[in-house]
């Protein structure tokens, strides 16, 4: 019988200029933007309606948040460079750079957990105030996205990287997709940090 294959899994379609997964990830990110957009809108609505609202810096640690911001921005950079390394056929450099990305993400999570620990230690739970509720919900959901990114990147760094030997172009595409997702998660944090910690 027919052994028809799905077209445009690797090469781009002539009129859209995209391969399937690249369009797919952009659509997925559009949906994610709506998810976080809804949470940011809720933040605004709740804050506008609140009698009093604490300044973020009076509850949260700005230095820790700023440090985490630096970590995530650096990890986005290494993610991008790892893709660039693959484009230059430098697999070894790719391994190192993607490895650093994963480590930076893990470090981010550790700092985040420490921040949560500091709050819990002072009995500052989500149920204590609307500010803490939205802080824990938004950063928690963001942390879930970080974990998702770590899982995907670790797979692509480890067992998934065998594809480099058989289908290098497709593997490079996968790193590009993972990178787009990672940049998005980074971008969300770039909004979360000022909104929650500084404003």
């Amino acid at each position: 019988m027919s052994t028809e294959t799905i077209p445009y899994t690797v090469e781009s379609r002539y009129d859209t200029g995209l391969y399937n997964a690249k369009l797919g990830i952009w659509l997925f990110l559009a949906s994610e933007a709506m998810l976080f957009g809804a949470l940011f809108s809720s933040y605004i609505l709740l804050r506008v309606g609140a009698v009093d609202w604490p300044r973020g810096s009076s509850i949260l640690s700005v230095p820790l948040g700023a440090f985490n911001t630096v970590l995530l921005i650096s990890s986005s950079l290494t993610m991008l460079l790892s893709w660039a390394a693959l484009r230059l056929k430098d697999f070894k450099k790719f391994k190192i750079l993607l490895g650093i990305t994963i480590l930076l993400a893990l470090l981010f999570l550790s700092v985040k957990s420490y921040e949560y620990y500091l709050k819990f230690e002072h009995h500052l739970f989500a149920s204590k105030s609307t500010f803490l509720a939205i802080y824990f919900t938004m950063t928690g959901l963001h942390a879930l996205h970080i974990i998702g990114g770590i899982v995907v990147n670790t797979y692509l760094w480890g067992p998934g990287s065998r594809m480099w030997k058989t289908q290098p172009e497709r593997f490079t595409n996968r790193i590009e997709i993972a990178g787009l997702y990672w940049h998005f998660v980074d971008l969300v944090w770039l909004f979360l940090f000022p909104v929650l910690y500084l404003l």
Binding site: S31, L35, A38, A126, T130, A133
Partner: peptide, 22 residues
């Protein structure tokens, strides 16, 4: 359109499970 409901669902879960007041 579905993601905002997911956000709302997460907040209602927080309200029900962790007793927040969204």
């Amino acid at each position: 359109a579905f993601p905002p409901l997911e956000a709302a669902g997460v907040m209602q879960l927080m309200d029900r499970v962790f007793h927040t007041s969204f």
